[in-house]
Amino acid sequence: MEFGPNLIIALIEGSVQAAVLTLIAVGLSLVFGVMRVVNVAHGEFFMLGAVLAWAVASFVGGHPAVSFILALIIAPLLVGILAAAADILILKRINYDPENTIVATIGILYIIQQMTLITYGPDARPVEPPFNHRFSIPWFEYTEQGYSMYWPWGLGTTSYKLFVVAAAVAVIVLLWLAISRTKAGLMMRATQLDRDMAQSFGIPVDRVNAIVFGVGAALAALGAVLIVPIQQAHYLMGGEPLLLAFIVVIIGGLGSLPGTIVAAVFIGLSDGIISIFFAPTLAKILSTLLVAFVLIFRPQGLFGKAVR
């Protein structure tokens, strides 16, 4: 294929990546923003979402659409509850001390991952998409007769991939509304601004923490349910999205939701595009180094405003 059609494919694949990455990263960013917690186990919540989606599909059977809808509800809910429990049982008890929290979430990471290995096993398993119409995309080329339209072989996508993008956008919009328009969102923002003040105004900070931690994990799980019909479920699948989400959250400016979204789209797209034209490993080397240097020389993030 030529450059043009290749770029279109890269853009589509990149958008799907970006959509799911946005969900994962927003979850991570939410938790960091409100609780000041760096959740290293975040990728495992994503993985759990995918494995639960598979479990629901194989348990329920029937039409994939039915189990898909069920999975969309059950997986984020279960993962959210598990995360909230981890918050109450572990993180709260160590007072969210930054360094201890990271150590504890590393522990949680291994526990979830290895428990999945014991129960679910080491295999990668597919989940059938609820619908999957394939369609081709036309391209234009310049010939002696002027521009003409043709269908390059391999240039196309599926309805499901477009759905993933649309669904992610919808979830982010809903989340945005929830944070900015509801009382729960207000409590959350108050906790983010000043914990002690929020507490003295009667906001149940402990409960806010547990819910935020749960919602953050649920967002990652939701992203996983969406991506698993394209990607397959595997117990080690949490590592890479975690790294990417970290990159996004840091480049977007720690704890800033708009920055996170912009960065997720940017990283998701560029990762998709770079991976098609360059070796994926090279792309990873560059992006990890980018994160390190952003933190060293521009800690407010590339898109964030300088503090003070």
Partner: peptide, 17 residues
């Protein structure tokens, strides 16, 4: 078990607690 890293995870959590 092949999931021996589970031990590492549990110990990390217990140590912090």
């Amino acid at each position: 078990t092949e999931a021996y890293l589970l031990v590492a995870g549990v110990i990390l959590v217990l140590l912090t607690l």
